[in-house]
Simulated assay, not measured.
Amino acid sequence: MKVGLVVYGDLEPRSGGYRYDRRLVEGLRERGDRVDVISLPETSRARSFAHNLSGRLVRDLDRSFDVLLQDELCHPSLVGLNRRLDREYPIVSIVHHLRASELSGLSRRLSCELERAYLSTVDAVICNSRPTRAAVAELTDTPGLIAWPGVDRFEGFPTDAEITARAQRDPFEVVFVGNLLPRKGLDTLLGALAGVERDWHLTVVGDESGPAYAREVRDLVRREGLADRVEFTGWLDDGNLAARLGSAHLLAVPSIHEGFGIVYLEGMAFGLPALASASGGASDLVTDGKTGHLVAPGDERAIARAVDRLATDRDRLAAMSLAARRRYERHPTWDAVGERIRAFLEHRVARANQSPA
């Protein structure tokens, strides 16, 4: 197949969504497909609407593709542009999560209508979780596929015996992995941990993508007197990140919303229960009370209770850690995910090529 993929910027794996897109491209190319990446300029959300008026972008997309993939994140740039295309190929949108899912009130309603308008211009969707698919179904009846992100990022995982022994060590090690952005909920986690009396330590791994927010959380650490219990590492390469995950007890990323939350799965590879958002796709991965805890966005008390319980009951922690590892082992690989997506794309291409009845 000749495939196009529309994204903002490049495919450097700065987030789970970009890693998903990148692995999809790699998988298609490994199977002999040609994939052209069409990079849209990264700009403010308001300025991205101007892309819909671009003649150059229309020409970039008016090619002889068999199928055009679009990262749904680009919907402000494509909601009008798609209607200008003189195309015979199907458009398939890759939906990691709807932006409306992060918002509330009027902002949410406006975002819903914008995303509804965009989704009306595509022929099918690929969603990364059942909750994401359900959210899309509220906006459109466009056919779709649920394709979880695959796993195979790390190597050298601890054994069951090492996971069990680790559970008895002090202090209780919590790790947060994610870009420092408000929607990731680091401030909520810090507020919760400030109220936990047990001996704990938090490692924060991630780029300071939002400088103002990064200053805010660092100020919070100072105000709460937590400077000796919280470490900010910045971005880490996979080797150093694996070392941090391998020595921790709990992965905690209490986001406002996660379309899937691949970081939870990556933590489970190391036998880490996940403290995850109850909003979004984490419920596809995390069984509350068995492989981790699902908490409502912003619920500091629920986070504090979960941390305190695991820090106190180390036998329970060991059992949940092993259950998390088993959940990881059952998860499909990227190779299996790629096969499912490619079969879905071939089906969409075949339908588009059918002669009218």
Rank of each mutant, 00 (worst) to 15 (best):
A135I: 07
A135P: 01
A135H: 05
V136F: 14
D141T: 14
D141F: 06
T142S: 11
T142N: 03
G144V: 10
L145Y: 06
A147T: 13
W148D: 04
W148F: 14
G150A: 06
F154L: 11
G156P: 09
G156D: 06
F157N: 01
P158M: 08
T159F: 01
T159R: 10
T159V: 11
D160C: 07
A165Q: 05
R169H: 04
F172C: 05
E173Y: 00
V174P: 03
V174M: 04
V175R: 02
V175A: 00
V177T: 11
G178P: 01
L180T: 08
L181I: 15
L186S: 12
L186E: 09
L189F: 09
L189K: 03
L189G: 09
G191N: 12
A192Q: 02
A194K: 08
A194H: 13
G195K: 12
V196L: 05
W200T: 03
W200H: 02
V204K: 01
V205Y: 01
G206A: 06
G206P: 01
G206S: 05
D207T: 15
S209Q: 07
P211D: 01
P211N: 10
A212G: 14
R215Q: 14
R215K: 14
V217Q: 00
R222S: 15
E224A: 15
G225K: 07
G225D: 05
L226Y: 05
L226D: 10
R229T: 08
V230W: 03
E231Q: 08
T233Y: 01
T233K: 04
